[in-house]
Simulated assay, not measured.
Amino acid sequence: MLSGVDDTDDASRSGDLGLLVLRLALGAIMGAHGLQHLFGLFGGPGIGGFARALETFGYHKQTTLLSWVTGITEVGGSVLVIAGLFTWLGAAGLLGVAVNIVFAKFHGGFFQGSGQGFEFELLLGVVALALLFTGAGRIALDRNTPWRRRPFPFAVGGVLLAAAASVVVLTLTR
Rank of each mutant, 00 (worst) to 15 (best):
M1D: 13
S3P: 13
S12P: 00
R13Q: 13
S14N: 06
L19D: 07
V21C: 08
V21N: 00
A25T: 13
A28M: 15
A28K: 02
M30R: 01
H33E: 15
G34R: 09
L35Y: 12
L35T: 12
L35I: 11
Q36E: 14
Q36F: 04
G40D: 12
F42L: 12
G43R: 05
G44E: 14
G48E: 15
G49Y: 07
A53F: 15
T56Q: 09
T63Q: 13
T64N: 06
L65C: 02
L66W: 02
S67Q: 13
V69P: 02
I72K: 01
G76I: 10
G76N: 09
G76P: 10
V79F: 05
V81R: 00
I82H: 05
L85K: 02
T87I: 10
W88Q: 12
G90P: 02
A92R: 06
A92L: 11
G96L: 09
N100P: 03
I101G: 11
F103G: 08
K105G: 04
H107R: 15
G108C: 04
G109W: 02
F110C: 06
Q112G: 07
G113Y: 05
G113V: 05
S114H: 02
F120L: 15
L122Q: 07
L122M: 14
L123R: 04
L124R: 00
A128F: 07
L129R: 01
A130V: 14
L131F: 06
L132E: 06
L132M: 09
F133K: 02
F133E: 03
F133D: 00
T134Y: 08
G135P: 10
D142F: 07
T145F: 05
T145V: 12
W147T: 02
W147A: 12
R150W: 11
P153I: 07
F154H: 11
G157A: 14
G157I: 13
V159L: 14
L161N: 03
L161I: 05
A164W: 11
V167P: 10
V168G: 04
V168N: 04
T171G: 11
T171F: 08
L172G: 03
T173C: 06
T173F: 00
T173L: 00
